[in-house]
Design a binder for these strands. Structure first.
Length: 281
DNA sequence: AACCAGGTTATAA
DNA sequence: TTATAACCTGGT
């Protein structure tokens, strides 16, 4: 068990915000979270996280990286408050939200599955995916399944996907598999690209459009200059700013208004709008 | 029963 | 270039 300072972050708000699909809330209000290479149990008390894992190797750094604890969110929020006065209402209720740094491969598949789908079903399909093709981890007398490895994924055939209950998205997953065969080190390739190039690179994959590509870049690569504009954000922009338009018009509107850290602002809008509609999971 | 869910693609105007 | 229907599936 290690103790990690987490400042103003709120664990449950962050995990339940819809960006992550691989956690279980336990009776004692702690969470089991499945990371790319291990399972952690995490509990928050005040400004600290108490973390246990089946793999304690470098655990503190893994936790800091995953929960994005080195970023100065307070400074970002203070800067944003100066840019849009009425947005303060949103910022004031989102200060404890953090953008998780998740596994790029997992983000690619998860957000393809997420399209025109609901969170419950998304989580179910990803869990089936991991149970079917991922490695097992034993932790606290329970079995957990990691997200499948690259080598496992590139061997997948159409018939292997039937068990996942992903419907018409199976052909998109197959397109991602073909993409990965051609791009073994896609994560490091993206790390050396501008965000715009990375978006176009990912959108080669059938089933990866603007929204899904942006989610992969924000949640898998911490690219805060991306724009995961979805139906929630569109609703928000319409209700809050009275601005209506298509995804590209909204993108331009927000880019102009916030300049930097637009990705984070959009997460705040999503988070805020979702909370006030009381539709958390 | 009809509609919807953190979208994208194919097709038509 | 922009708009609209169709899409698997399970839940309400």
């Amino acid at each position: 068990m290690i103790k990690v300072f987490c400042g103003n972050m709120n664990l449950s708000e962050t995990l339940l915000s819809g960006q992550c699909f691989r956690f279980y809330e336990l009776e004692d209000e702690s969470f089991d979270v499945i990371l790319s290479d291990r399972v952690i149990n995490v509990f928050q008390s005040g400004k600290y996280l108490f973390v246990d894992s089946n793999n304690s190797n470098d655990l503190k750094n893994v936790v800091i990286d995953y929960f994005d604890l080195n970023r100065d969110y307070e400074k970002i929020i203070n800067d944003l408050k100066k840019k849009s006065l009425n947005f303060v209402e949103v910022l004031n209720c989102c200060g404890s939200y953090r953008v998780l740094k998740q596994d790029p491969l997992e983000m690619l598949f998860s957000y393809i599955i997420s399209q025109n789908n609901n969170v419950k079903r998304i989580m179910g399909s990803i869990e089936l995916f991991c149970k079917s093709y991922g490695n097992v981890v034993n932790f606290r007398n329970k079995e957990y399944y990691l997200f499948p490895t690259y080598d496992k994924i590139i061997g997948l055939k159409s018939e292997d996907l039937q068990v996942l209950k992903i419907g018409f998205r199976d052909k998109y997953i197959l397109s991602a598999v073909e993409f990965l065969k051609r791009n073994k080190d896609f994560a490091s390739t993206i790390n050396n690209m501008t965000t715009l190039d990375a978006l176009n690179y990912l959108m080669q994959i059938k089933g990866v459009g603007m929204k899904v590509a942006s989610c992969i870049l924000l949640f898998g690569f911490a690219r805060f200059d991306t724009f995961p504009i979805d139906t929630w954000v569109m609703k928000f922009v319409k209700n809050f700013y009275g601005f209506d338009g298509n995804i590209f018009q909204i993108k331009m509107f927000l880019e102009e208004k916030f300049d930097t850290n637009v990705g984070l602002c959009i997460q705040y809008m999503f988070h805020y709008n979702r909370n006030i509609n009381k539709k958390i999971i």
